[in-house]
Design a protein around this nucleic acid. Structure first.
Lengths: 109, 109
DNA sequence: TTTAATACCTTGCAATACAAAGTACTATTT
DNA sequence: AAATAGTACTTTGTATTGCAAGGTATTAAA
């Protein structure tokens, strides 16, 4: 992907990371590094430093909870789980996203 | 729309205004206030102060040009027109947007 | 001449993601 | 045992974007 395309995507991604993160965790709990791998594979983030503050933010808002778990292959992992409040938020985000897609479709055709 | 929904939408809108603005101008030239009206109607911006810096930015990047035109109903208007470079950018944005929609669809199902 | 309407523009602020670096634990190699 | 590599979590500084609020200027109507 060329630099301009990358910049365009970077700009559009803004504000969608939270939605993606909650969606990933709605499927099953996960630890930060694995979430980062998934988001990187989907070209939704570039660097790991982006996700950690977001997870902390969501936790402080009561959308996520976490527990430490030992790993056989390195340092302990922080497993995040979506809360009922987080699920409600996710539903609202889903609705907002669908509306946004429709709006953009209308405006750009 | 409740406050939370409004915040969610505000966050998601980020980075899409440029795309919407270029799209609107690709259809036909327009002056700032009319673009603002269209974007407000689509819930893509909240206040007019948001758009002016963006138009200036796009003009400085060579994506837009403008000319002044007298109005019969008030002060003169600054009509913006999309340039060939702007059209190329718009095509790239369209591609980026379509990829983003697919990515989100995959991640959120 | 004051007011209303239209239109353009600027400044300060908050939030988000990036870039880059740092800390800490475990396993492997020397 | 010590050094290295790999995994994982975290922090700090910066740029960009949109919002909030206010300001300037022109025209028409009261």
């Amino acid at each position: 992907m060329d630099l301009n395309q990358e910049n365009i995507r970077a700009q559009m991604r803004k504000g969608l990371l939270e939605y993606c993160t909650l969606s990933i965790l709605a499927k099953k709990e996960a630890y930060a590094s694995s979430i980062i791998d998934e988001l990187k594979a989907a070209n939704m983030i570039v660097v790991e430093g982006t996700l950690y503050p977001l997870l902390i933010r969501l936790k402080n808002q009561g959308m996520l909870s976490y527990r430490w778990e030992e790993s056989t292959q390195g340092p302990p992992r922080k497993y995040y789980e979506i809360t009922p409040k987080g699920k409600m938020q996710l539903e609202e985000m889903k609705a907002a996203w669908n509306e946004l897609v429709e709006t953009i479709q209308t405006l750009t055709k």
